[in-house]
Amino acid sequence: MSQYLVLIYGDPSYEAGDSDDVMKGHMKFGENHGAVIAGGNALQPTGTATSIRPDGDGFTVTDGPFLETKEALGGYYLVEAADLDAAIKVAKDIPMPGGGVEIRPVVVFD
């Protein structure tokens, strides 16, 4: 079994709880795939993001997400799957209003 982080990207104007349909979709996803979901959360909109970059011997702290993109990271799931095909199959059931998801394999350190 491997772990995959599934990042959910969508329209930044969308906020968690905005739409009952999307929330219902996540509930249903949780019920159907509970056995392979190792974690997951919805994130507050990008307007609440704070970025920190090292700056010589200190840090610069700024308002806003690390990268300004058309589609913003809105939440994630950590999914357990035997291989990429299995992970893709699970990820296709995640609600993705006005966006999509990105699947990234998690590195295993021995």
């Binding site: 491997s2 035997a82 291989d83 990429l84 095909d85 590195v107």
Partner: peptide, 14 residues
């Protein structure tokens, strides 16, 4: 190797 793309013929659905 790292994303575990399988060495397999996909199932009928896919």
């Amino acid at each position: 190797a790292h994303a575990h793309i399988p060495y397999r013929v996909p199932d009928e659905e896919d």
